[in-house]
Nucleic acid binder design. Structure first.
Lengths: 195, 195, 195, 195
DNA sequence: GATGAATGAGTATTCATTCAT
DNA sequence: TATGAATGAATACTCATTCAT
């Protein structure tokens, strides 16, 4: 009676887990149905296609990242602090939603040359815009070196952080906090010892 | 025998291009055969399975990375210079073999839980070993800060560099040299202005 | 009870329209439900199966044709006039109930080899009986040529008239009256000019 | 070795038979494969989709009709004789290729609103053009009544003849020759006795 | 080396219908 | 009277691979 979509959410969650373990293509609707304890066609009560599930996963992850960075960029703090908070928040989001982000970041290219791609690109650009904006204003306000290229450094940040899905494990020895601290220091002062 | 080899190489090259454009699963043997101007079953004179093509691609890319890092690590230079050379060489390899590396880095997880996976992991570990080794000796020799974690910083380096496949284009505005210079400085001295 | 009936009729009407536009098989119960503004299972309050809708459509059309021809055949008029009236009435029925007749005549074969088929055949035979009967008595009474075969000429009449569903449009340039007049003359005196 | 497509022709023939008996939609690729003694996917060596089979059937029938009517219209004979020959040839074609024509005429509407429809319409129009052209010149040359409408009479001819698929059986009592003779006389001089 | 023919296993999706509420 | 949830059965089509020639 309560139409809260909780069964749909369960489906997304289960599918995400399977997509992470076996890959999107390799996971069949059969697999998802089995895991949910229902028959294959019943899945179509909750979603309209397999691709729709992936779209939802991508949407969820991208929007969480964007909400987070927008809030940070709005805050009345220095670009240096913004950068630190972005690193914190991005790593936390990934580590706490590892399945969602693994699938999203791994499979996102599948939409290339499809209608949904424009949507994806728009979201991606939004995030990158904020990153570059913070780097640029840090430069203008005299916090960051003048010779940094926002685009190239922005990609360094994204690569560094997004690559986490390839090696992070909640059972591993490194905590999100440790990772974040290491990288914040790396991005601000580099590896060389101050003399 | 030389004849064989060249035709096989052509196959790998064509397959790599298609895998990059359409993805490994989405590319059919039919697609590859068509692009080569032969019939589907004829492919099997050169390779023994579709997966074999991917294995070869992974092998080629990993081995190039390893040869390069081994040579660098062997050289009689400081860890700082080693780090710089790794960044240079890794970016150059990716940018000059963009198709190969895009496919390799994107599809490598496919072997998860298969026999080939152990092989992949061994290669990956070899590369990571050298990275961490250089970071550790840089620390020991007093070049790098003492509070850096080789593992976490090593992943930062790999993420930063490997992520290049997601955005780099030979037609784009940024050259491998520029990218490399920006990142070398980032890793050594960070973004903050020296006061 | 009156309420029921009207809702059921609405269903038949909507289904008929959809069957005409998309075909019986291609139209789903979903399509019908949507068009009615209710949910799929609710349809089953009014009909017992999809096939039942088609049965009803066939019944309605066949019975109208039969009522009409029976009335004509009962009338105290010459076979020539009977023939003319049949043409008039058959064309009028089709043109004024184009959706019903299009569906009925197009999909009627679907019941082949099913229980309902005997029923359909009985209705069809009834109509054909009257057509042939009129032709035969016209021959006996000296109105029609003696060398005509009632069966073959009867089929000519049916084909000519029933084919209307394939080309007639209420928006087209030809009125049912014009069509009817042309065909009455065709059947009675043929195309050749009297010399 | 001889690449004569005979297996493909066999497939079309078998499919045609099944489509006639069970209908296009109701016949599955499975059914066709079984009847051919091969596995389902093997069908796709010869055709590229189920719809392709139907397209071929429609093409074959329409083109035979058109070849025939073009030849007749080109001949140096009177419109009256042309009309007679059209009736002869059309009935013969249908009766001798009953399966092909039954499927084609019954399922042709399926392409409505698809790309192939324009092609179908073009073929249909070609045939109808010749029919009307012959009627019109018969009128102009003084053979036919002046009050006949080529379009309406043309449809009478088509309906009468095409309806044959609904009742003709090679095992039935009426031969194509008999049918043809009855209808030729019907169209030329009608049913009324000459006084 | 090359390939036409064939296929086993799989894959997403559709749909009429049922039933408890 | 209405419907959300569920499903058994079907369906067209794909694809890597094999093999006789």
């Amino acid at each position: 009676m309560r139409k809260d979509g909780s069964r749909r959410e369960e489906l997304i969650k289960i599918a995400t887990k399977l997509f992470m373990e076996k890959g999107y293509r390799t996971t069949s609707m059969q697999d998802i149905a089995k895991q949910m304890g229902i028959q294959k066609p019943s899945l179509y009560h909750y979603i309209s296609s397999k691709e729709d599930i992936l779209k939802e996963i991508v949407d969820i992850t991208m929007n969480r990242l964007i909400s987070s960075i927008e809030e940070i960029d709005r805050a009345d703090i220095s670009p240096v602090e913004k950068l630190e908070r972005i690193i914190d928040s991005h790593i936390t989001l990934i580590c706490e939603n590892l399945e969602l982000f693994t699938v999203s970041l791994r499979e996102i290219n599948r939409f290339n040359a499809k209608g949904f791609w424009a949507h994806v690109v728009a979201l991606r650009d939004k995030y990158e815009y904020h990153v570059r904006n913070i780097l640029a204003s840090g430069k203008k306000l005299g916090y960051f070196r003048e010779d940094i290229d926002e685009k190239i450094i922005g990609f360094a940040l994204l690569g560094c952080v997004n690559w986490t899905i390839r090696w992070y494990s909640p059972k591993g020895e490194k905590s999100p906090k440790e990772i974040s601290n290491q990288w914040k220091k790396l991005f601000l002062t580099g590896l060389l010892k101050n003399k």
